[in-house]
Amino acid sequence: MTTNQIAFLALALLALIGGGGVVFSQRPVRAAMCLVLNFLVLAALYFMLGAQMLGISQIMVYAGAIMVLFLFIVMMLRMDREEPHKVWWTSAPVIGTVFGALVLFIFALGIRPVAEMKPGAVDPKFGTPQAIGMEMMTTYAWPFEVASMLLLVGIVASIILAKRRI
């Protein structure tokens, strides 16, 4: 067991604690805080994978912008703890266990064929903003424009949704 593996296991444990907190905590504020923990740990894992630029944008976009939005909504809606589902067949522990085990099983089937893959010899500029910017302005120029249109539509849509009478 090397240092990297121990570091990975510690980060993975923290990520799973954060994810479990999102799913199992009854109060939305606690769920949001657990989600922040999960995002920060995932940013650390991105750094571990050599993708510095994406790790930083993970912290800025997810842990910064998106979580602020979530906390605003939680604050404005004054949500307290939720009751269990009203429909009798949606007993949460049963449905959750069965569904989660099924999803995990399907993914585990997909992991085995690629288990021999090793880290490739990548360019030293692998995760730098320079490399990503070059790629975005050359190969991915068209998807980049589409994404900007999508964000524009999102801005307009949220302004329209915020009007008093829709």
Binding site: T2, M48, L49, G50, P119, V122, G127
Partner: peptide, 8 residues
Amino acid sequence: PTGIVNDV
């Protein structure tokens, strides 16, 4: 290679 993933 960049990053420190080589033995994970």
